[in-house]
């Protein structure tokens, strides 16, 4: 599924090596080494507290890793302020709680980044924003404020807001966990369309249907470690590790 091109010799766009993260005495990430190829769709699974969210938050440096290396599209994530600015416009992120800016209209939420960071002219930014709203299916909500939208609509606006920065990579941190069941599909549809368009995506989610149907690869985290990874078919039907089997037996 996903992008057949990705399985070929596409360049690796995310590489991590021995990443560790500590919160005080608690080790949240333990020696995570992985890579993601361009146009690849990776779904990250794991029980709560397994470090999967911490991991993708490290990928755009919302959390700083304590050891190991993370290289995104050739940019090293370290204390270099130039790299930090560069990475933020390469990597888009969608949050569980949407985190739209409540004091700005939908349109201004989307144009804020392009106008203030990329210095796009207002008109141009707004045209692009309308196209993105069209793409996520809610162009008619442009003038409204986030509080006037449903959860699903808010999350779609959040996706459009991230896309407005024209990122090479999109990170999704449990994008459907805060949604009412009837709204989950509208968000997943947008994500699927995005995947088909060739975006590189790392998705933390509990939606097994999405993982099976859209992902090129599934990664399983437990207790801060990357326990197992493989194609969806391999992962769901023939898991190798005991911990993976236990997890699958609990959720399926």
């Amino acid at each position: 599924m996903g992008n057949e091109a990705a399985s070929a010799a596409a360049p690796e766009i995310i590489v991590t090596e021995g990443v560790e993260k500590w919160f005080g005495d608690f080790q949240a990430l333990d020696d995570v080494t992985m890579s993601v190829k361009e146009h690849e769709i990776v779904v990250v699974l794991g029980p709560s507290g397994s470090g999967k969210s911490t991991f993708i938050r490290c990928l755009n440096r919302l959390e700083e890793h304590d050891a190991g290396r993370i290289v995104i599209d050739g940019i090293e994530l370290n204390d270099d302020v130039r790299n930090l600015n560069a990475i933020r416009s390469e990597v888009g992120m969608v949050f569980q709680q949407f985190n739209l800016f409540p004091h700005l209209s939908v349109l201004n939420n989307i144009t804020l980044g392009p106008r203030k960071v990329r210095r796009q002219p207002k008109r141009e930014a707004e045209e692009q924003a309308m196209q993105l709203l069209e793409r996520v299916g809610i162009p008619e909500q442009a003038e409204k404020f986030p509080a006037q939208l449903s959860g699903g609509q808010q999350q779609r606006v959040a996706i459009a807001r991230s896309l407005a920065m024209q990122p090479k990579i999109m990170l999704f941190d449990e994008p459907t966990s805060a949604l009412d069941p009837e709204m989950i599909k509208e968000v997943l549809d947008v994500m699927q369309e995005l995947a088909e368009s060739g975006m590189t995506m790392v998705v933390v989610t509990h939606e097994m249907g999405f993982a099976r149907g859209v992902a090129d690869r599934v990664m399983f985290f437990d207790e801060g470690a990357l326990v197992e990874q493989g194609t969806p078919n391999h992962f769901f039907d023939n898991p190798r590790e005991e911990r993976t089997k236990l997890f699958l037996s609990q959720i399926l």
Binding site: E12, V15, E17, G18, D31, T33, S35, G68, R69, V71
Partner: peptide, 9 residues
Amino acid sequence: MTTMTGGLP
């Protein structure tokens, strides 16, 4: 595992 240096320069 930590010593594995994939292909990173």
